[in-house]
Design a protein around this nucleic acid. Structure first.
Lengths: 147, 147
DNA sequence: GTTGAAAGACTTTAATT
DNA sequence: AATTAAAGTCTTTCAAC
């Protein structure tokens, strides 16, 4: 599942990380090759699974989600599966990993205000104990791996 | 900083969340309006900060990062600032939040193999105690908020 | 705020190296 | 694998509603 990248691939990925809607033509000029070459390379990166797609970056704050929190869930005995489903069905959860150790799941949740926290946590009351940390800032705001 | 969205905005955001490189023409057909209208709406969503940009989704696994881990950092006395800088300068850290509570920072790190974990954590030895959980799966793999 | 139409720009194909 | 050139398609502009 691993792929070797050359300099052109890295140039392409770096440009797409900055602006995923850049035209193949502009990317071709930036990389010093022709647009069909860019087109082929991007398709190959998609075919090999390096590029999984292109996403819009939406600001939670601009949509009224004033707070973000990191919630760790420790499943109650026998409740791990239903907990996982409940997490997936909670649309305020925008990211969640199942991890090793005491806490079974680590999730990122969006809140309109602090008053929304307790009701949200209570929906998990029968399945897990929780540990919540409010996000004060994000020193590293979701960046790609180094190519 | 909050913005009201209408149905057309929501249709546009949903389409762009699925494929951020869709052409304005195809999006126009999907939404049942003209391409100039789509163009104007997207520009407005960018101007109001709802759309912050467009990013390529890269697979860490395809680049050889076989493991992901969630690392919580508790800064040693007086070391919070230098810790934050060190985290930002560590390119294996692809996401990090500064949070309330015992653990000052929660980070997501990429590893080529488990042997990379200890050396990485040791670079933080003078600044923080750490708590590491290996990601076993990702029940919610980074989704946008509901529009 | 939206539309249709035209001009301009970009993308894709296919022949070639 | 990469390039050029031409055909095809999309984007942008703008006058009109």
């Amino acid at each position: 599942m691993e792929t070797a990248l050359d300099d052109l691939d890295r140039t392409i990925l770096t440009a797409l990380a900055g602006d995923a809607r850049i035209s193949w033509k502009d990317l071709a000029i930036e990389a010093g090759v022709s647009s069909p070459t860019i087109r082929d390379r991007v398709r190959r990166l998609q075919d090999t699974g390096v590029v999984q797609g292109f996403a819009v970056k939406v600001s939670p704050a601009a949509l009224g989600y004033a707070l973000e929190a990191v919630v760790r869930f420790k499943p109650l005995p026998g409740k791990q599966h239903i907990l996982e489903q409940q997490i997936q069905n909670t649309d305020r959860v925008v990211q969640c990993d199942k991890v090793t150790g005491e806490d079974g799941f680590v999730a990122r949740v969006l809140l309109r205000d602090i008053g929304e926290l307790d009701p949200l946590l209570e929906t998990f009351g029968r399945m897990a104990t929780t540990n919540t940390s409010i996000v004060k800032s994000s020193p590293v705001r979701m960046r790609p791996p180094t190519f």
